[in-house]
């Protein structure tokens, strides 16, 4: 145990490389207003110089410092110590769903591979790019995503069911919804969205609960996409009217 002077709290960080891990306990003197990331960086600077952690902006804008604090998926830079029960040790684990590299750093490269497969913005030919705020509000909500991958981490379809081959995860349904709802986008991704596993989602909404950007992932991205896919491929009316449609 490493000890310091001042207002003491106990922190346990899951450390180790790959699958070999253990919690290591530190006693830290903290300052007012500190967030969990402050504590982790303090430990890194004073006690464990090789403690691996990802962070960048420290202001909840970049989505780098995702972790599980006392079992809850959160951004460390947004988790204030004041909001935690400090009579017990603060337990910091890396996000569980992705393979651990070292300490709090995990291999999230799968997400970047998935992103490459999404058909990008495809504007209508000769689009004049005149559109209105009311057209873009929904799209802007989707584009708030900071790619912290907390939704990917908490979603049981990935976390417990390991459907990496069949399911792109909430983050990419958010991206797809932003593209599909764009007033000027001309591509049709609905067939792909079904193959991307939209119906593997059983709407348990954990992605929405953990989203630090407060994107209503389930209500405003996933469910509208489900409805669009049903419209396209499973609509009773389409089925009835199909013989009469001129296509």
């Amino acid at each position: 145990m490493v000890q310091e002077e001042g207002r003491q709290i106990t922190v346990r960080i899951l450390r180790g490389e790959g699958v070999k891990t253990q919690e290591v306990e530190y006693q830290v003197a903290v300052e007012p207003g500190w967030v969990v990331l402050d504590v982790v960086l303090h430990i890194q600077a004073r006690m464990a110089p090789d403690l691996a952690v990802r962070w960048n902006c420290k202001a909840a804008k970049c989505g780098s410092c995702s972790a599980e604090v006392n079992g809850k998926p959160r951004l460390m830079c947004k988790t204030r110590l004041d909001d935690l029960d400090l009579t017990k040790p603060v337990v910091v684990h890396p996000i569980k769903t992705f393979p651990r590299i070292k300490d709090l750093v995990t291999d999230v490269s799968w997400n970047f591979e998935v992103n490459k497969k999404i058909q990008p913005f495809t504007p209508k030919k000769d689009a004049a790019f005149i559109y209105f705020q009311e057209d873009i509000d929904r799209v802007q909500e989707m584009r708030k995503c900071i790619e912290c991958f907390l939704c990917q981490n908490v979603c049981h379809v990935l976390r417990n069911r390991e459907q990496y081959q069949r399911f792109v995860g909430p983050r990419f349904f958010v991206r797809l919804a932003g593209l599909e709802m764009h007033p000027l986008d001309d591509a049709d991704r609905l067939k792909q969205i079904e193959e991307d596993g939209i119906f593997l989602c059983n709407i348990t909404k954990c992605c929405t609960h953990v989203c630090p950007e407060d994107i209503h992932i389930t209500d405003n991205a996933i469910i509208p996409l489900k409805e669009r896919v049903i419209d396209k491929s499973y609509s009773f009316w389409n089925w009835v009217l199909q013989p009469f449609s001129s296509k």
Partner: peptide, 8 residues
Amino acid sequence: MEQNIAVG
């Protein structure tokens, strides 16, 4: 000295 705790 660090105190190490195994995780189940």
